[in-house]
Design a protein around this nucleic acid. Structure first.
Length: 964
RNA sequence: GCCGGGUUGGCGGAAUGGCAGACGCGGCGCACUCAAAAUGCGCUGUCCGAGAGGGCGUGCGGGUUCGAGUCCCGCACCCGGCACCA
């Protein structure tokens, strides 16, 4: 802020610069007004939203009004505090909420904190400070910063995911999910989650057969447990993860370098199966994909979710390998005749069974990786593959690697004997972990075939002039026939269904649906998260902690870091921080069959857990009997009949605003969680977010000197188009705002130099809400000037008196006012705040030019400004003689009679180029306009004697004359 | 690599397939002032022209259309996500 402050600071200190008018709208005055109104809103409870039921029920305020539930993605309370990028979405939802409140809605808007997470834990590791302390301190700081923004939130509803009462219900919901299974037959085949006891009952009475055909009565307790466990929506399983013994933690792919080492510490990382909690989100794949049709979300975000779920129809085909079978998954069964080898994921179970003792005759040298026998080749290749991340393995264009495993498969359609490879471009996590390679139709297979000298057969006719290698497009099928079936001459789709029918008839395969979506890995080896509300008995079976004992709270630990191991010890097992507190882990409980010893789960839940349902808790945060009274839940989130497109409304939050970086994971997890709760009858909304809007990011410039060192952005000056710091030239780059880039600007800087209202107006006028843009402090003054001019139109700067007159406004001004009302309503409704503000500035500029300021114009203008600059508007509203807050005043309505224009400008083009403009009546007819245009001297000159071929008339705005 | 998005004056941006650059920042000029600041008024895409006026212009290459920033095809660059950062 240093560069601006020289002038602003003096006025701040003295209240007003010596020769400035006493009642000018300065940052100092703005701050006084803002804090006064914030105090008043707080004492009067202006923005406390009434509930229909429970302790905050105010039925008389709920009756007769529509409700509107507005939500922001809640922040992580970071120790770095807020920068000017964070409030963007909060301001936008606040403007929208204030606008809709003035339009008569009962608006609910609150903000909580997503307070579990790694940064507080890492800080704890470094300093020994308990994460709860750090987190609470940070929340206090953020609350203070946010209060100065003047957000119309119901502060009673602000909760943190770390609050014991919140954790209690998160754990309670986890147990409901654990105690549920997905009945794929329910609801006409759409499927629905049901209580696990209903499954046990079906298995017991025989209405649902056991997978292996045995009778329920014949099973041991352990066997019954295992069967049910295989159905639960939350389950424990061995899953491949990036295990880093040197750090003692599992890492995300992002934290693993291309060399297969940890980004932090540069330790080796091993791909290993570890025991993890999982959520069976895949059971919901179809509903998660289908129900996107029922929500009002940006199309690109729906697209990303559909791609993430990745539903594809294909076939599972059995290839015989000796006496074994391997099932491959393909989306292109029509290309089966072109399959010239089989590739398994290196981790595939069958590999060990299939590997022979020696290379078979005819093995090419290139296939062996230089190893003397297949076993050695496979082991070496697996070790190499284990060091790569999934992203890296799939990178196209990367040199294909793999090794022959010494076995041959039989292509079921033509009996061809084709070699079996393992290669890391095939992933265990997708399909069956095995593919039939069709180099003629798949570029990755083509590259592999070329490298390993394997045959290439085209089965789809590529278009004329095809220059590429593999052809994956539409076309006519060729070279695809045996004694029983021919696909030749068919299109791709027909060939697919024909071959699937044939495979099913022969028992060689079946049509399938597969998904890219994988089950959700739900456990973390961390301290600062929700403990799992379960215990394990001596047989390793899971038992729920009884509801009345919730929440299971985190114990104090001697050390917040996990146990670390010899960096090369791939076989070590993670020991999370909770594992180091034996007196917490070992517990004696009576779960119905007498006191017994149990072990607690030492993993914790991921950060996502709380964010899957926090918005439901806002509705009824003081309720200690249940997570939310059903009457409150259905009032704020319940479905409301049909959507305009005919789909049934799924219910949910009315407007959710947040960063597009959450467009896939957070939104998908929350949708899954919501659907489980819906299926179990716990909530009435089938989707959490009826409407979602993704906001852009505020970026900032960062500057580096010649050595590449970051220099403080606020000390960089522009000299003749060059950026310099202390006289040295520096380079500029687009970046995020962050301490390490020395380019942070905070809301507090803005409050001090301009006031909160100016800051709000600037953030909203920078551009459309969904577009990212760089922050530029020196442009903020434009918003201050706008508010100053508005202030000056109402208040005499010298006397402080109201200078508004009661005489009527002239007609042109009235027209301008009503055009503005119409436009601003439209823009606010569509979240186009930047253009709304532009229209308000234009209107204010019209008023500024008038000799007297008429009340009938300035009052609606103040009301229209109120959503973006609420404190200033409240102050002006009271100076205009009103008592009480304007928060519930009706938003102005345009008079249709004043919206029709007296005359319009008609553009006359010759061949699309503007040559003349005519002022005409809005009602002018086509023929009259055509004659007028053809008579124009400029048009005649532009035609330069050429004949007229066509005249396009779009009365009253445009005529386009096309010469011969 | 895969999925999604973007590219318009010196800068942020505006524009239901119909006047490109609303509004704001910055810059220039004028008024007020002893002066400066503040405020008000005017100009400000670019090139040619004294002017009237004209040529060119929305990342690059093509296409559709009476007419394209906007629609279609191809390309370049930048941003977001890729499942244990949140």
């Amino acid at each position: 802020m240093s560069s601006q402050q020289s002038t602003e600071a003096t006025s701040d200190e003295t209240g007003a610069a010596p020769d400035q008018p006493a009642h000018r709208y300065t940052a100092a005055l703005a701050s006084r007004i803002e804090q006064d109104w914030q105090d008043r809103w707080e004492t009067e409870g202006t923005f406390s939203a009434p509930n229909p039921a429970g302790p905050w029920a105010e039925p008389e305020k709920v009756a007769g009004r529509d409700k509107l539930y507005i939500l922001d993605m809640f922040p992580y309370p970071s120790g770095a505090g807020l920068h000017v990028g964070h409030p963007l979405g909060y301001i936008a939802t606040d403007v929208y909420g204030r606008f809709q409140r003035m339009c008569g809605y009962n608006v609910l808007h609150a903000l909580g904190y997503d307070a579990f997470g790694l940064p507080a834990e890492q800080y704890a590791v470094q300093t020994g400070q308990h994460p709860r302390k750090t987190t609470e301190d940070n929340i206090v700081t953020m609350r203070r910063q946010l209060r100065r923004l003047g957000l119309a939130h119901d502060a009673r509803r602000s909760i943190a995911t770390t609050d014991p009462e919140f954790v209690r219900w998160t754990q309670w919901m986890f147990l409901r999910i654990w105690n549920a299974w997905y009945d794929t037959d329910a609801d006409g085949g759409r499927g629905r989650a049901r209580h696990i006891d209903e499954l046990a009952a079906q298995l017991a009475d025989g209405s649902r057969p056991l997978p292996d055909g045995r009778a329920w009565a014949d099973l041991s307790a352990q066997e019954r447990y295992d069967v049910l466990d295989g159905y639960r929506l939350a389950y424990v399983s061995e899953e491949p993860v990036n295990w880093c013994p040197g750090l003692g933690t599992v890492l995300s792919n992002e934290e693993v370098t291309n060399e297969g080492r940890s980004e932090r510490g540069n330790f080796p990382v091993f791909k290993r199966n570890l025991r993890q909690w999982m959520m069976r989100i895949t059971a919901y794949a179809d509903r998660l994909a289908d129900d996107l049709d029922r929500v009002d979300w940006p199309e690109p975000v729906k697209h990303m979710q559909r791609n993430w779920i990745g539903r594809s129809h294909g076939a599972a085909v059995r290839f015989g390998i000796g006496e074994h079978d391997v099932e491959v998954f393909t989306t292109r069964p029509d290309t089966l005749f072109g399959a010239t080898f089989v590739v398994l994921a290196p981790e595939h179970d069958l590999v060990d069974v299939l590997v022979p003792a020696a290379w078979p005759a005819g093995t090419k040298d290139a296939w062996t990786g230089g190893h003397a026998d297949p076993r050695a080749a496979v082991d070496a290749y697996r070790a190499q593959a284990a060091e790569k991340s999934d992203v890296e393995r799939q990178t196209e264009g990367r040199d294909k690697t793999g090794v022959f495993i010494g076995a041959f498969a039989t292509n079921p359609v033509n009996g061809a004997r084709i070699p079996v490879f393992i290669a890391d471009y095939v992933l265990m996590g997708y399909g069956t972990g095995a593919i039939m390679a069709v180099p003629g139709g798949d570029q990755r297979d083509w590259e592999f075939a070329e490298k390993f000298d394997l045959p290439i057969v085209r089965t789809v006719q590529a278009p004329d002039g095809w220059q590429g290698q593999a052809y994956a497009g539409e076309g006519t099928v060729i070279s695809s026939a045996n004694d029983e079936i021919s696909l030749d001459g068919l299109g791709v789709d027909d060939a697919k269904s024909r071959i699937i029918t044939w495979l099913e008839g022969k028992g060689l395969g079946r049509g399938t649906v597969t998904y890219k979506l994988r089950d959700w890995l739900f456990s973390r080896q961390r301290y600062w998260g929700e403990p799992f509300p379960v215990v394990f008995d001596e047989a390793g079976r899971v038992h729920a902690v009884p509801d009345e004992q919730l929440p299971v709270e985190l114990p104090e630990v001697p050390d917040y870091s996990p146990r670390t191991f010899d960096p090369d010890d791939a076989d070590s097992d993670p020991e999370p921080p909770l594992g180091r507190v034996p007196e917490w882990v070992e517990v004696e409980m009576d779960l119905g069959d007498g006191p017994q010893r149990y072990r607690r789960e030492t993993n914790t839940m991921p950060n996502w857990a709380g964010s899957c349902w926090y918005f439901i808790r806002y509705l009824d945060p003081a309720n200690d009997a249940t997570f939310c009274d059903p009457e409150n839940e259905s009032y704020w989130m319940g479905p409301r009949g049909q959507r305009s497109d005919g789909h049934p409304d799924p219910g949910g939050v009315d407007l959710y605003v947040g960063g597009v970086e959450h467009a896939v994971l957070h939104l998908l997890y929350a949708r899954f969680w919501q659907k489980v709760m819906y299926d179990l009858g716990l909530v009435s909304a089938e989707e959490p977010f009826r409407r979602y809007f993704s906001q852009g990011m505020i970026q900032a410039y960062a500057y580096r000197d010649a050595r590449g060192q970051v220099v403080p952005a606020d000390e960089v000056v522009e000299l003749e188009g060059e950026w310099t710091w202390e006289g040295q030239p520096v380079s500029r780059e687009h970046a995020k705002m962050g301490k390490s880039l020395k380019n942070v600007v905070t809301p507090d800087d803005m409050y001090d130099a301009y006031g909160a209202d100016t800051f709000r107006v600037y953030e909203m006028s920078m551009g459309p809400l969904d577009v990212s843009r760089p922050w530029e402090t020196r442009a903020v003054v434009g918003s201050l000037r706008f508010l100053q001019r508005l202030w000056r139109n109402v208040v005499d700067e010298d006397t402080g008196e109201c200078r508004v007159v009661d005489a009527a406004a002239d007609e042109a001004t009235q027209r301008a006012l009503h055009r503005t009302i119409e436009g601003v309503r439209h823009d606010y409704t569509g979240l186009r705040f930047n253009t709304a503000i532009a229209k308000l500035i234009e209107l204010n500029n019209v008023v500024t030019r008038l000799p007297d300021v008429p009340r009938e114009v300035v009052e609606p203008m103040v009301l229209m400004v109120a959503p973006v600059a609420p404190h200033l508007a409240e102050e002006l509203w009271s100076r205009l003689g009103h008592t009480g807050s304007l928060a519930f005043e009706a938003f102005p309505q345009a008079d249709p009679a004043l919206l029709v224009e007296e005359s319009v400008t008609c553009v006359v083009q010759v061949q699309g180029k503007v040559r003349d403009r005519l002022e005409v009546a809005p009602s002018i007819g086509e023929d009259e306009l055509r004659s007028l245009a053809l008579a124009s001297a400029r048009v005649v000159a532009a035609l330069d004697g050429r004949d007229v071929r066509t005249v396009v008339v779009r009365a009253p705005r445009l005529v386009n004359i096309v010469p011969a």
